[in-house]
Write a protein that binds this DNA or RNA. Sequence first.
DNA 1: ACCTGAACACCGTTCAAGT
DNA 2: ACCTGAACACCGTTCAAGT
Lengths: 196, 196
Amino acid sequence: MKTRPYHHGDLRAALLALAEDTLRDRGPAELSLRELAREAGVSPAAPSRHFKTKQALLDALAVEGFERLTGTMTGVLERAGASFAERLTALTRTYVSFATGNPALLELMFSRKHEPNPPAELITAMQGLMTMATDLIEDGQRRGEVREGPIVMAAVPLAAILQGMTDLALSGGFTGEQVDEGLTETIAFILRGYAP
Amino acid sequence: MKTRPYHHGDLRAALLALAEDTLRDRGPAELSLRELAREAGVSPAAPSRHFKTKQALLDALAVEGFERLTGTMTGVLERAGASFAERLTALTRTYVSFATGNPALLELMFSRKHEPNPPAELITAMQGLMTMATDLIEDGQRRGEVREGPIVMAAVPLAAILQGMTDLALSGGFTGEQVDEGLTETIAFILRGYAP
DNA sequence: ACCTGAACACCGTTCAAGT
DNA sequence: ACCTGAACACCGTTCAAGT
């Protein structure tokens, strides 16, 4: 049998995993570095070697979330059809599925959006997701399935509707089936809006 | 000249005003009850008579925000034209204007959306805003300017796009002029989506 | 009714010191 | 390099006591 990693092996990864757990079932307000340290079996000062500050840990968690989401999306796109409608549907379903599966993490991922100095790593991770949206639209425009216009402006409604759809799925008390129907409706709305 | 209100007059209102100030220019994370008490010139325990907990103060602030926003919107609607396009434009501009003027407050207003037990007052205040959106759409449907369909589902894209537009205006580093153009684009997108 | 003073159990962060 | 122990300056909240 394996012994526990000597002197706490990979504390950084352990802290991230524990943080995601408490984030998931007790919310970000309840997250305490000292408590994380206790759960990991280290002293209160130990985490500071890996995350200079509590915010740094939260940022690292957010980056991890973006990477997981964009990774999944990339995989899904490879298996999806070529039309704008098919690719939009595939990405939308992936996004909403991630959101309903990791609501607190998703909120954390976007929580630093309006703040003055988001760390470079987080900006990069966020842009990765934004790029998937703009690529989707540009591809649709090339295929003549999406009306012309500035890409950034076109990406806003898409991103926004996804967030809104997600909110409804999370807090609306809907069944999985209802969310699925709503998704179809929403995608139809977007397609009409983008129609040439 | 007026003397300062005896024994701190309306501490409740004073705390709310001070809280909104620090929320505006230092963010919600920096908000401390003890500091608010210091600024108001009372003991650390004094606020607890008016707000049992820090969250209660934040909730009260959020409720105040919703009331101010819906109040302004109602006034604007009275002066707006009758067509769906006109009323949608009027409400959208009012919303984005409030959002860019009170970004931190707006975020606070929606921050308890996903949490388990939002206080009844906050739910009511949020529903007031939601009702304005659904009323707008129902009115458009009655006039034959908006396609038929479940109102809730139709309100999601609207609310979502507004939030998304707001995000872009806040964190995109756009000029007022650019936001204005973007708004026109966005409204056009919504109108196409809703077209019968 | 409204507020004070003092206390309790926590925080995040720092820093010398250990291994 | 990584962690401990102890300390510092703060929290939110509670509760007897004052006016």
